[in-house]
């Protein structure tokens, strides 16, 4: 892919992705052909800030986990009052990084 397209994609999506993986993602994207550009433009990423707000409001109901696709963990969180309240607090701290990791995994799946 064209370096300008790759840099534009990374610049506009950097807040959704793990910073530590940016170099690998860029290197990989540069090896892809231009046909991937459209697919990348419409890639649906979760916004870490939105997920954090959802986690803050509906944490004990595990809506944040369900939205990220962690169905099993979501059910576990839901039926245990948010892991006796502890899991909810941990997720408030961790959920933004978890969201970025999930987004990065999704992108990796698409480009590898």
């Amino acid at each position: 892919m064209d370096a300008q397209h790759v840099d534009m994609f990374l610049f506009s999506n950097s807040k959704y992705l793990e910073e530590s993986q940016m170099y690998h993602i860029r290197e990989r994207l540069l090896t892809l052909d231009e046909s991937h550009w459209r697919m990348l433009q419409y890639m649906p990423f979760h916004d870490p800030v939105i997920i954090l707000i959802i986690s803050l409001i509906t944490g004990p109901l595990a809506v944040d986990r369900f939205m990220l696709g962690d169905i099993g963990l979501g059910v576990a969180k839901l039926i245990t009052c948010g892991g006796l309240g502890i899991w909810v607090l941990v997720d408030w701290i961790m959920i933004m990084n978890i969201t970025r990791r999930k987004n990065t995994e999704k992108l990796m799946m698409a480009i590898y």
Partner: peptide, 18 residues
């Protein structure tokens, strides 16, 4: 009382009473 919903909103969550 470990449920945050009950603690802050004063009504039970779906799993209260488990």
């Amino acid at each position: 009382e470990v449920c945050l919903v009950r603690h802050f909103l004063h009504f039970p969550c779906p799993s209260c009473g488990s």
